[in-house]
């Protein structure tokens, strides 16, 4: 499914509580979210359960999604990431979960800042693919293994300053890829 089709699914959930649209999102994302959480150390059962919770949040909060601000993949990633912060790093007490703070609507982007999201996505993917190996590894350790910058320094026996400068170089490339074309 392309990004426009995915965005339409979320919008159909928000507008009509559309279960068929939800099933499409589930089939696309649940296996990826499960894989993501298993990489971060959840066993298959917990990862499946959390992936369902993430998709359930998509259902409940569909009206908060704004395709001008992010892709569905990025939005879903942030929901999964927040569940990870809440659950995998500490004891599990779901009965006390507050509203997910990341789901409070953000200030809208100005219309002239909103840009062709498909082109932006492609440009970002290309930039990630073209990162120098050490910067690419840094991002993978952060996003796929959930390591903090200081944990990365320890794991790779690198000075903290080296990790920080690689991170900044990678960030500059990503930011450039996301800049509007004039």
């Amino acid at each position: 499914m392309d990004r426009e089709a995915l965005a339409e699914c979320v919008e159909r959930i928000a507008a009509n509580a559309d279960r068929a649209a939800f099933a499409q999102l589930y089939l696309h994302f649940a296996p990826r979210v499960k894989g993501y959480l298993m990489r971060l150390g959840a066993d298959a059962g917990l990862a499946e359960d959390l992936a369902q919770e993430v998709l359930l949040t998509v259902w409940r909060k569909a009206a908060h999604f704004d395709r001008r601000q992010s892709s569905v993949s990025t939005w879903l990633y942030t929901i999964a990431r927040n569940r990870r912060i809440d659950v995998l790093r500490r004891e599990r007490r779901p009965e006390l979960d507050p509203e997910d703070p990341a789901l409070v609507p953000a200030a809208p982007v100005a219309a002239d800042v909103a840009m062709d999201q498909s082109r932006r996505d492609a440009s970002l993917r290309a930039a990630i693919a073209e990162l120098p190996a050490e910067q690419s590894e840094l991002l993978r350790l952060a996003f796929y293994e959930g390591k903090s910058h200081s944990e990365i320094a320890v794991a790779r026996a690198l000075p903290l300053g080296t990790v920080k400068s690689r991170m900044r170089l990678a960030f500059n490339r990503l930011r450039r890829a996301l800049e509007p074309t004039l």
Partner: peptide, 11 residues
């Protein structure tokens, strides 16, 4: 948002 977009692409 830039870093999170990378997270979305990697997901």
């Amino acid at each position: 948002a830039t870093f999170e977009a990378a997270g979305g692409a990697l997901l």
